[in-house]
Each structure stands twice: as C-alpha cells, then as structure tokens.
Simulated scan of single mutants.
Amino acid sequence: MKQTWRWFGPDDPVTLAHVRQAGATGVVSALHHMNRGQAWTDEEMARRKAMIEAAGLTWDVVESIAVPEAIKTRTGDYRQKIDNHKASLRAVGRAGIKVCCYNFMAITDWTRTDLDWPLANGGTALRFDIVDFCAYDVLILKRRGAEADHPKSRIEAARQRLSSWPESKISQLERNLIDWVPARETVYDRQSFLRQLDEYRDITVDGLREHLFLFVREIAATAEEAGVRLAIHPDDPPFPLFGLPRVNSTAADTARLLEAVPSPANGVTLCTGSYGANPANDLTAMARQFGSRIHFAHLRNTRREADGSFYESEHLDGDTDMIGVVAALRDIETAGAREIPMRPDHGHLIVDDIGKKVNPGYSCIGRLKGLAELRGVMRTVDAFRAGKVH
C-alpha cells in the first residue's frame, strides 16, 4: 500500500517536512480555501501540487471536493454546484491525481462530543459519547422531534449530567458538535444549524439515497473521462444524528451504491474507524467484498461501548481486526496489480504534541505512531506470504 498522510495545506501545523520524517511518501490534500462550491482551477491545483513535490512527496489523493448541502437536498443552485464539482474533478484529473475521496453526510462531517478525551496513559483521544450527544440534541439544541430519537433512560441520564455542567462545558460541547471540523466548508451557530436541519425535514433515507445515486451517476461519468477514481467515505458515526438520514453506514448501503452506479470510477474509501463504529460491519469481510472498488483506505480503530458510545483506540487495539484488514487489502493489490493509497487516521494526542496547536485527530506524533504500527503489519503480512515468517 502507498503510505500517505493528510495535509491541510500551508497553514497545517504539521509540515510537509514532518510528513517525510514520518515515513510517508504521498500526500492527501485539498484546496480547502476553494471549498464553497466553486470550481477548482488548474492554477490553484498546480500551486498546491508544486508545494508537495518540492518537499519530495507526491499528491496521491484529493480529500475532499466538498459536496454542498444544495446538492444533497437538490434545491437552490444545485445544478450549478454539480457543474462546478465536475469542473473540479476535471482539474484534479489534469493535475494527474488519480483518486478523489468525498462524503455525502447531511450537514455534519465527522462528529465527536470530545476532542481531548483523557486516556489512561496521559494522552487524549477523540470520543463520541451518546449520552452527551443526547444532552445536546434534546436539552440544549432542543431539536424538534429529538426526544423520539432517544430512549427515555438515555434522556434521563443526559438530564442528570447536564444539571452538573458549567456553561463552559456546554459551550465546548456545542462547538465540538456543530461549529468545528477541520476544512469543513460551513460552520454553524445554534440558530443557523436549526435552520439547516429544516432543509432536510421532508427528505427521507430513501430520498437522500436517490439524491446520492443521481449525483454519483453524473460525477462518475466525468471522473471516468478525467481518469479519476471516486472513493466515497462512510458516514461518521455510522448511524443517524440530529434526525438526519444516513445513506452510507453499512456494507449493504455501500453495496447498493456500487450496484446503482457500476462505473469502475465509482468506488469506496475503506475507513475502518467510521465503518467500525457500527457493530454490524465486519471490516475484513467488507475489504474482500468490495475488492477492486476500494480506491483508498483510512486505517484507524475504535473501541465501541454497550450504549453506542465509542472512542478512537490504538490503531492495532480496537474492535476492528486491523491485521485481517491489511492482509485483505494486500491480497486485493496483488490480484489487481495495483497500489492502494492508505493513510493513518485520527491519531492520539501524545508526547510533546500535548499543548501544541494541532487539528484534533491530526497531531503529528499520534499519526506517526499509527503509521509505524501499520507499516510493521504490512511488512509482516508480506513476509508471511513470501514464506519468510512462519
């Protein structure tokens, strides 16, 4: 697998020099300053690519060209936004980048209640706490119909927690849930978030899925022409939030998309953390099921809890069998005579990254540790297959 690293651009506190020192040879990046639904230009693509190549690295994956809410709801100027998306894909192809990761999550991007959850070793991790989420959804945001989406026992537990929280805890939780995600094209306050939720009030799961299929049929045709492979990222978390429909949370969801749009350009980002937070998903089986349609991999691990909460665990120590996944991906590469780009995802905040300015989940040392562990697994799998290890 091609070892890559997500880099958010010139303002990323983790520099391209750090990426090389971590041992990655490829970069995953995007024109985040142009992610408001406009078309990316050849000039901006060339500028970003030149930065990456000057550091002795290659730009292997675009993550992501944003999919505006107008496209997901098929309202307003969605037709112009789709045309702009196609133009951006053509610019990506002309720049020689072969893979484009994207997601189709309504309103939210990846969502966590805690960005600095304390670990026993003194580091911190990302965490999604279902009771904290319920407290925000039902008692703070007071979303219409929210109580119907949570069991009474959870609401009562949330009410008890909220009674002891200072205002600073409430403000931080709100920021984590609706105001902060690196490189998201839109940030919200409480009122604007509620207004955006209203845009989805009449869109069902089947309706949003059909919008996804319509969108992917169009952009897959463009991607084929441009020589770009699309790699949809799963919902994160892989279950409904804020009453919004989810359409790519399970193996069955992904299979439906691949069947609906059989273009070879239409493929998957196998994100072991996002899919893995849903106990219905067997990641090793999914790797083998989707095989040649896997164009990109995010390798991270999560530890699930009985109530639906989860946290980002060590890369090799969670509910996903990472060794089995890596072995399956290496088989896919061998069968297809190709190299799948992968990147370590959502590393812990550890060592002297603690106290530094970092994008949560994207610190240097935590991801470096994850990449080193994954590299060791890849080397061991290869040695075993070659008969060098018994």
Score class of each variant (00 low, 15 high):
residue 177 L to R: 01
residue 14 V to S: 10
residue 192 S to E: 13
residue 190 R to C: 08
residue 279 P to W: 08
residue 276 G to I: 10
residue 141 L to Q: 12
residue 368 L to D: 14
residue 206 D to W: 06
residue 360 P to Y: 11
residue 213 F to R: 12
residue 84 N to Q: 10
residue 144 R to P: 03
residue 266 N to Q: 04
residue 370 G to F: 03
residue 242 F to E: 03
residue 82 I to M: 09
residue 221 A to W: 02
residue 345 D to I: 09
residue 269 T to L: 01
residue 67 V to A: 00
residue 105 M to Q: 13
residue 384 F to S: 13
residue 147 E to C: 08
residue 186 T to G: 00
residue 251 A to K: 11
residue 334 T to C: 06
residue 4 T to Q: 04
residue 46 A to V: 06
residue 49 K to P: 05
residue 43 E to Q: 14
residue 181 V to T: 14
residue 240 P to D: 12
residue 243 G to K: 04
residue 288 R to E: 13
residue 358 V to F: 11
residue 20 R to V: 12
residue 252 A to V: 04
residue 388 K to F: 14
residue 29 S to H: 09
residue 98 K to N: 00
residue 384 F to D: 14
residue 61 V to Q: 03
residue 115 L to Q: 03
residue 142 K to T: 10
residue 167 E to I: 06
residue 136 Y to T: 01
residue 205 V to M: 13
residue 122 G to T: 05
residue 350 I to L: 12
residue 200 Y to N: 01
residue 113 T to N: 00
residue 189 D to W: 05
residue 232 I to M: 13
residue 350 I to N: 07
residue 338 R to F: 08
residue 115 L to C: 06
residue 184 R to E: 11
residue 383 A to K: 13
residue 32 H to V: 03
residue 25 T to Y: 00
residue 289 Q to F: 02
residue 68 P to Q: 07
residue 1 M to A: 09
residue 327 A to S: 15
residue 151 P to V: 11
residue 168 S to F: 10
residue 277 A to K: 06
residue 224 E to Q: 13
residue 105 M to E: 11
residue 44 E to C: 05
residue 197 L to H: 02
residue 195 R to M: 09
residue 5 W to A: 09
residue 134 C to V: 10
residue 122 G to C: 08
residue 386 A to R: 14
residue 184 R to Y: 10
residue 252 A to P: 11
residue 389 V to L: 15
residue 350 I to W: 09
residue 27 V to N: 05
residue 318 G to C: 07
residue 279 P to M: 12
residue 302 T to R: 13
residue 296 F to K: 07
residue 20 R to K: 15
residue 250 T to P: 12
residue 322 M to G: 04
residue 376 G to M: 06
residue 325 V to W: 05
residue 388 K to D: 11
residue 361 G to P: 09
residue 265 A to T: 09
residue 133 F to W: 07
